[in-house]
Design a protein around this nucleic acid. Structure first.
Lengths: 295, 295
DNA sequence: AGACAATATTTCAAATAATGAAATTGCAAC
DNA sequence: GTTGCAATTTCATTATTTGAAATATTGTCT
């Protein structure tokens, strides 16, 4: 980025990322450094961070020390900084929040006042894990659970068989690209028209593969088809060579509370698609039955 | 490392948290707030953070905004801040680091120059997951993999059966309390005397349950017993009602590179202990065989 | 509906903590 | 030894953060 010398003494001068109001800049930088380290497989040296972020090396040194002291990064003897033990610790806490009953279903600040998709049941991942496990076992493919959270489709459980090929870049807590995967599409398909409207207004349909649906009209058609047939298919729309099948899970009130899916190599779709979708639908039915029981 | 250059300069008075040198205070505070939020199940309001950390409410407001803008926390409509989607994202990156070959086995800065425990094989968790899966399937209990990392015992994989009861507070990436669990004890038992010495110098044997071994001499005895019998038992030493069995995994050079374990309700120990330990030993043998193959 | 209470947000000048150029130290190769 | 490169430290300058207080917002009670 540009150097800022003594051009305008009074100008606050916004150095790196545009500095919004109400942001602590040194803290923001430290968080940006953490993010950068996460993106770099082998870790980074002080100098590398300095170069990549165009920050003074002294600033990077102090920032990394701060992260180090709090356990967010770790310093290898080679001088490379990598993510530290605080990260999985925080993640464990995050996972616990998935098992809690959240007090509200309203839309977070700044959103339109559109009615929000179905309320989540408490401990959804915990309650449905046996069913996912069974699905994964029978199909010998990874099984997934997702539901709405804060207006996004969030992946909340993954159960992998012994020899799994999980979709790369997908992890518990992953949100987004709902238009490009079976879980997202099925959850959208069973949302109100107004909510879909709202969702589309908040997101751009990013192209991830050649087959990703990026036209709004085609997506809406697809959602209708899905709602009609009761499950959704992702044919290499998120990741090349990978296909997904997803089906909705209904809570005791009959609202779609979540979706269950499996992923597999897309070549299996023609050969085993029928059977696999039957398995997913079966699991989804079992899950709905589970949610009908008193908790 | 920051050296204290002058003995007692003008000690500028250390305001809130003890201000170490080379630390960016506003960044440190932001990280502390993140940590606090992680520890609080239902999330915290601005005011609550302010009260708990004895910070000005305006400071908390700005700090939370900074975390919010970067996705580290999320703001519920109720005004409660909870951990945000950046946390699982970072964790995913952390998990990937477990699958990498690390360039060094030397001890990180500040440690004694004691020979370090065995070098990890690359992708240990990935390579051994089928074996853990099998162990978990047969025993119907959660299976674990741990190995040394940066001088600590780190839990690196967990495979849970359909109806699992994972030990609370234990997660992938968890380090520490090696004296109080089967995985830690078995890994210590097969480390050099000098390394155990070093480990004990760096750690206090914290009491976690009534049965935790906190006396240095008793622990050393225990380690000898373990090395002799080839596996370790945790009888409610980490968590009441829970027992663990662990056995060592050897790499192609014959060095102990990891340990495999299962956990279960301690009441099963007398009834099924024999059988369970046979399963763990079997899995550990399989794992060692796997590591003997060319990668 | 109106008033109250509790909290969140904004303001702004003072206080100070962060910045960055440059010096120093550390380390490894030559 | 000497050289070269990167990490660490120094320190004066200056932008950034702080925190008391004002204001806005939200929720609750009558």
């Amino acid at each position: 980025m540009a150097k800022r010398s003594h051009a305008h003494p009074q100008t606050p001068a916004l150095p790196l990322s545009e500095s919004k109001r109400d942001i602590l800049r040194s803290a923001q930088r430290v968080l940006a450094i953490l993010d950068l380290i996460a993106r770099t497989p082998g870790g980074l040296t002080v100098r590398a961070v300095s170069g990549l972020l165009q920050l003074n090396i002294s600033t990077c040194y102090h920032s990394l020390n701060t992260l180090l002291a709090a356990g967010y990064v770790e310093r290898l003897p080679s001088g490379h900084y990598v993510l530290g033990p605080q990260i999985p610790y925080l993640n464990d806490a995050y996972l616990r929040t998935l098992s809690h009953d959240w007090p509200t279903t309203e839309s977070p600040e700044g959103w339109t006042a559109v009615a929000f998709p179905p309320v989540r049941q408490p401990s959804l991942p915990q309650r449905l894990r046996p069913i996912l496990h069974n699905l994964s076992e029978r199909s010998q493919e990874p099984a997934y659970l997702a539901s709405w959270r804060y207006g996004e489709v969030e992946l909340q459980a993954i159960v992998e068989p012994a020899h799994a090929e999980r979709i790369p870049g997908v992890y518990i807590g992953y949100r987004g690209q709902a238009h490009a995967h079976a879980l997202g599409k099925v959850l959208l398909a069973y949302s109100s028209a107004a909510f879909v409207e709202d969702y589309l207004a908040r997101h751009t349909l990013i192209r991830l593969t050649q087959r990703t649906i990026v036209e709004r009209s085609r997506l809406c058609e697809e959602l209708h088809t899905i709602a009609h047939q009761g499950y959704s298919i992702d044919r290499e729309e998120l990741h090349p060579d990978t296909a997904c099948l997803a089906a909705p899970v209904r809570d005791a009130q009959g609202r779609v509370a979540a979706a269950i899916a499996i992923s597999f190599r897309s070549t299996l779709l023609s050969r085993r698609g029928e059977w696999l979708s039957a398995q997913v639908l079966r699991a989804a039915r079992q899950a709905s039955a589970e949610l009908r029981l008193a908790r």
